[in-house]
């Protein structure tokens, strides 16, 4: 009797979930919302600002070509190279800026922590797949572009249960 009632109880607890709304969401059409515009770092206070660690964004008007991000990445992923750029800046005499290989990057964000000039942040963009290895290398010009994101799905909890909506 104990076995039969136990199995009925187990089945019943599963059956209760047939009527509830499903917890999953349709990924490419709907996207999960993140906090803020991505991980940032304030070198004055030495503390980061919470956000998603996705693809980087580079501000050309602030980057001095000091290579600190590249040095920070040296022992981690060796993903950052410093190629020459064609533009000329007063604050960037060497005219070099980071170029990031997302085939190697581990998205730890320690390069952002290394930047003392507020020039390198991270964004909410995580869809970086490419058909070629070269397509994963983002040049300084590509890193400058602010990504377009339409992420609006959040976890909602009510008395019926949780769902993404």
């Amino acid at each position: 009797m104990g076995t039969a009632s136990g199995i009925i109880k187990a089945l019943n607890s599963g059956v209760k979930h047939i009527a509830t709304k499903r917890f999953t969401f349709r990924y490419p059409e709907q996207k999960l919302k993140f906090v803020g515009d991505g991980y940032q770092y304030d070198p004055d206070s030495g503390v980061g600002i919470a956000g998603y660690k996705g693809r980087h964004i580079l501000f050309h008007d602030k980057c001095t070509g000091c290579q600190l991000c590249s040095i920070a990445c040296e022992d981690i992923a060796e993903a950052i190279a410093m190629p020459k750029v064609e533009e000329e800046w007063k604050h960037n005499k060497k005219a070099i800026m980071p170029q990031i290989d997302y085939g190697k990057c581990v998205f730890c964000g320690l390069c952002v922590d290394a930047c003392p000039f507020y020039a390198l942040y991270m964004t909410n963009d995580y869809e970086l797949s490419s058909f070629t290895k070269e397509g994963l290398i983002y040049t300084p010009a590509q890193l400058q572009v602010k990504p377009k994101v339409d992420q609006d799905v959040e976890i909602q909890i009510d008395e019926k249960g949780a769902k993404h909506g």
Partner: peptide, 27 residues
């Protein structure tokens, strides 16, 4: 995972703890 994502900025491999505290404050 959603909570950790809000807190640390990554769903798995967070790299959140550092010697001397944590990388960032919570939102």
């Amino acid at each position: 995972i959603d909570l950790l994502d809000k807190m640390t900025g990554a769903r798995v491999t967070h790299a959140y703890f550092v010697p001397g505290g944590v990388r960032n404050d919570v939102p």
